[in-house]
Design a binder for these strands. Structure first.
Lengths: 341, 341
DNA sequence: CTGAAAGCGCTTACAG
DNA sequence: CTGAAAGCGCTTACAG
């Protein structure tokens, strides 16, 4: 109680061995006689000794910690991603240190400096929208994996989904149902994910002459999505299909369609991106491009663990495919239905 | 590039001063001549020197980090809580280290040991359901604040909401609309939040003779909530009002009601606990006991910062009130409506 | 305004 | 199988 904090030395003294021997017992390195080992464990228990990770890290010039920097942990996508990384990394000896940057390039840099001061073993990063991070900035972390969004001119392993193809499929799905005027409500222009998905949308439409595609950029939030969708429904009453950039924007679209007095899927068909619990609850259930968040997080964890264990991992993107889940929010547009009838 | 990593010594040598002086410049402590200070900053820049937090922590026997241990970061409630704590703590010089425990008492203990090995300044904890943590376990962290759930026989400041009163209000709301058979789908029996809310439910009903209250315990997930609600609707067709323990359980209730072919609010009125984006999207919008997650996180951050700065903070709970938001999911039961008509 | 010495708790060579 | 010495990068007294 009143004794000073237990250290490797107080344990060593109690047993009558050197600190070095205690260290060996603790780490399971080298040879220690069974008798000594038992005595050390007994002293550890008696003193309630707990290793000090700070001393260990300082000596090793490295902390068994992996930094995770995301744009917004309040966004379920990032929360699930973090959880998936954590599950993969559990038991590997590494802990995770989570940081937020509110999608602000300056905060991102600040958080990264902070993280770096602890000399972590690696970093998993979802770069911020206007990120100014360079190869050099990331190289300082040793092992880096980027997830979801990709940084220009930076050569680190990245885990991404096939947004281009997936949105292409979703667009094709609407076209196949007879929609001829389709809108995509995107995220911020500078995000690589926005570019990918926009390309997929435009490519699919360019293959369908006579059909029109409309695109809007937003901040990727529910209110941003709602505002853009409302404006579109008002100014382009011919739009009968809409694709959301992410789950939040899709919430906004669904809300805007209802507020505008249109019905889904009778008047407007909707396809979301990234599944969410409410999408199966809503009537009609929302069709969605299901992003494999868990697989993406697990793969990012794998890559980092591989790099940390010395395996060489080549830079560049790993694509984990998203797939279209068909539910009830897509139907032929009213005009087509009438024509058929 | 090829030079060894910059340290306080390499900077000192370049300037021709002692390491001590560099430390003073870095920390803004003591007196340093303007000329020396400028020279030190120049050398820091030239060498791209970054302070090593590990060395600093070891010397200080304390790391400017606050551990945050929650049951499940995939649950939006905890994600929002973490975010709120982070916002409050930003700029204070402390970083947050987030850990998960999957509501498992054993993992909780393991994560806590890990965290403790870094000698953090404090801990914000949402205790796991079956937590075996004692006063001693937490005292080792120096400064501790518990949030949402409360630990028996542990005397640390806690930030909670008034679950008892809030559920009492919700129950009263249903009673006032003429419901006489009401169910509450709760979380795990051992959670303090379950006990609070259950008490509030029973207390409100005991004041209304002739009315019947039914209670079910679940694991607090959507599927748990859905199973319990389905069973109730099947075995107790007289139930016309249901209250959910949290947002996920409420999802389950809404789903079960629809699957059972009952309409909300015509056949069954529903009140949730903890607001979520989908609740205003769903038709009808779900009435909810709105839990002030942001305020709770901010208060927890405040308390910890106060304790860390030496202010004395007395143990015991701080209650941040939840309030009932009335939306469209509560109406008189069909039988009452018929009688009135 | 500035510096030499010691030490935070641990592990890495090195030597037996 | 075990130990004495040094050092990871920093800050805390102490002394000028």
């Amino acid at each position: 109680m009143s004794e000073a904090r237990a250290t490797i030395y107080t344990v060593a003294r109690a047993v009558g061995v050197s600190a070095q021997t205690v260290s060996r017992v603790l780490n399971g390195t080298g040879q220690v006689s069974e008798k000594t080992r038992a005595a050390v464990f007994a002293a550890i228990e008696a003193q309630d000794y707990r290793p000090n990770a700070v001393g260990r890290s300082l000596r090793a010039s490295r902390t068994p910690m992996i930094g995770v920097l995301v744009a917004d942990i309040g966004n379920p996508f990032y929360a699930r991603l973090h959880r998936a990384i954590e599950r993969r990394v559990a038991g590997s000896g590494y802990s995770l240190m989570l940081m937020n940057c509110d999608d602000d390039a300056q905060i991102e840099r600040h958080q990264l400096d902070l993280l770096r001061s602890y000399r972590p073993t690696g970093l998993v990063i979802v770069p911020s929208i206007g990120s100014s991070l360079s190869d050099d900035d990331l190289r300082a972390f040793g092992h880096v994996v980027s997830v979801s969004r990709v940084l220009d001119d930076v050569h680190v392993p990245a885990v991404v989904t096939n947004g281009r193809e997936a949105v292409g499929d979703a667009t094709a799905e609407l076209l196949a149902h007879g929609h001829t005027e389709i809108a995509m409500i995107l995220g911020p222009r500078k995000a690589s994910t926005t570019r990918d998905r926009e390309e997929g949308f435009n490519a699919a439409l360019s293959r369908s002459p006579g059909c029109r595609g409309l695109v809007r950029h937003t901040d990727g939030t529910r209110s941003g999505g709602e505002a853009a969708a409302s404006e579109l429904l008002r100014t382009h009453p011919g739009v009968t299909g809409m694709i959301g950039f992410n789950a939040l924007v899709t919430e906004g679209i669904v809300s805007a369609v209802r507020t505008a007095g249109r019905r889904c899927p009778d008047d407007v068909s909707i396809i979301g991106f990234t599944d969410a619990g409410w999408m199966t609850l809503y009537p009609p259930a929302i069709s969605v491009i299901d992003q494999p968040v868990e697989e993406m997080g697990a793969l990012a964890g794998d890559l980092l663990l591989d790099m940390a264990s010395g395996k060489s991992v080549d830079p560049g993107p790993r694509v984990v495919p998203s797939t279209l889940i068909r539910r009830g929010s897509v139907a032929p547009p009213a005009t087509t239905k009438e024509r058929k009838a």
